[in-house]
């Protein structure tokens, strides 16, 4: 039998969740799931190219942190190569993310970035960073900027928090340790959110790190580290809210290790032959969207019809995004050299 790390317990009984909040989280997660399924379809139909990394299974982390604890469009979000759904949760319209995947001029990065480089200054999405761990210090820079505006420029409205997402593989890289040290040293308003999905492509987490409990690594920086069931959006939301409150109070960063799983291969180019059937089935049975749906029904916060209506609505949103992307113009070849310098 598969040995899985025991998941931290979380009692939903204590959760304060309104119907509107519950449905918004559900909708955000469904958007992430249906969007990514559509990406797979479009990739296999030859509509998008390159390395495309899907987020299926991990939705509770993006939704729980960004929708559950941050103010999208005000607080900063920093992502990795697996960035479509962080962009969506941060408020980047599905049309712009899909158009970017199609390489179109209307994409959020004007067709210059692609799957691994989603950016939106307007939505305070600092970007998708394609090399593992390189986004971590950049995110700390945004957090430093908030502290600087408050303490040096005297801007009392400067209270943004930065959420920096990365995977278990990044936690063995120097930039992880270097940045955690600086963030704790200077009490930066930042959440380091590790999405521990157990696998760095084909490298099992236990084979890559001396202590697989990533959250414990915070302690050596005098930082709070917490582990959370990353398949439970309400649990993620709870720890993120606590961390955000700590950051806004000037008490510094938090390392959140969300135990989660990707339901697909590393990328659409990965045949996913290494992970065992038992492991996949175990985690598929813990689908975070089904879990929240059941919770909302049990608590009488929603009806089956409510959830179906959301599913239908999101399918329309994603279909509309595909139509928009297909009908959008290609970037103008005369603008090949545009955006190299600030004046362009």
């Amino acid at each position: 039998m598969l040995q899985e790390r025991p998941l931290p317990t979380f009692s939903p009984a204590a959760v304060q969740l309104s119907r509107e909040e519950g449905l918004a989280l559900y909708e955000d997660m469904v958007l992430g799931r249906i969007f990514e399924d559509k990406c797979a379809e479009m990739y296999y139909r030859g509509k998008m190219f390159g390395f495309v990394h899907l987020y299926n299974g991990q939705e509770a982390v993006a939704s729980g942190v960004i929708r559950g604890a941050l103010r999208p469009g005000v607080d900063y979000v920093c992502s990795t190569y697996r960035d479509h759904v962080h962009a969506l949760s941060a408020g980047v319209p599905a049309r712009e993310v899909m158009a970017e995947l199609f390489g179109k001029a209307t994409g959020c990065s004007k067709g210059r970035g692609g799957s691994m480089h989603m950016f939106s200054a307007k939505h305070r999405l600092l970007g998708g960073y394609a090399f593992v761990a390189e986004g971590i210090p950049v995110a700390a820079g945004a957090a430093f900027q908030t502290k600087y505006r408050r303490e040096v420029l005297g801007d009392t409205t400067a209270d943004e928090v930065t959420a920096c997402f990365f995977g278990d593989g990044a936690c063995n890289n120097g930039q992880f340790f270097e940045t955690l040290n600086m963030a704790a040293l200077w009490k930066l308003p930042i959440l380091f959110v590790v999405e521990n999905n157990k696998w760095a492509i084909g490298m099992a987490h236990e084979r890559a790190t001396s202590d697989p409990h990533i959250y414990k690594k915070a302690s050596v920086f005098n930082m709070v580290g917490v582990e959370v069931d990353g398949m439970d959006v309400l649990a993620v939301r709870e720890v993120a809210q606590t961390a955000v409150a700590r950051a806004r109070a000037g008490e510094g960063p938090t390392l959140i290790e969300a135990l989660t799983y990707r339901f697909r291969g590393h990328s659409l180019a990965d045949p996913d032959e290494l992970r065992s059937k038992e492991e996949k089935e175990f985690w598929l049975s813990r689908d975070p969207i089904k879990r929240l749906g059941s919770y909302l029904l049990e608590q009488d916060l929603a009806t089956n019809q409510d959830l179906k209506t959301i599913d239908q609505k999101i399918k329309q949103v994603v279909e509309d995004a595909v139509t928009f992307a297909e009908q959008s113009p290609e970037p103008d070849p005369r603008e090949l050299r545009r955006y190299i310098f600030a004046e362009d």
């Binding site: 959020c108 939106s120 970007g127």
Partner: peptide, 8 residues
Amino acid sequence: RYTSGGNF
């Protein structure tokens, strides 16, 4: 700056 399509 380029990769972001001029966002930053």
